[in-house]
């Protein structure tokens, strides 16, 4: 690993890494991300509706 590249990069805290695979939190995020994506899809399909 290039030391300079790693030195100046932002790194996640242990808590952030833990939350990435913490099941209750991820189940909530699954719902939130899906809602955000569905809203985005609907917006993008305005010109395609028949």
């Amino acid at each position: 690993m290039d030391h300079d590249q790693a030195m100046y990069a932002t790194k996640p805290t242990r808590r952030t890494v833990f939350m990435r695979t913490f099941l209750p939190w991820q189940m909530w995020r699954f719902a939130v991300i899906n809602v955000k994506m569905i809203e985005l899809i609907r917006r993008g399909h305005r010109g395609t509706k028949r």
Binding site: L23, M37, L40, R43, G44, R46
Partner: peptide, 27 residues
């Protein structure tokens, strides 16, 4: 009908490890 890329969004889910309990992806 129209579908300009300047008027639509995109979702991208980039897998960063495939495992149902330890995997992650950038949504």
């Amino acid at each position: 009908h129209t579908a300009s890329m300047a008027e639509m969004g995109a979702s991208c889910v980039a897998s960063a490890g495939a495992n149902p309990f330890t995997g992650t992806a950038a949504a």
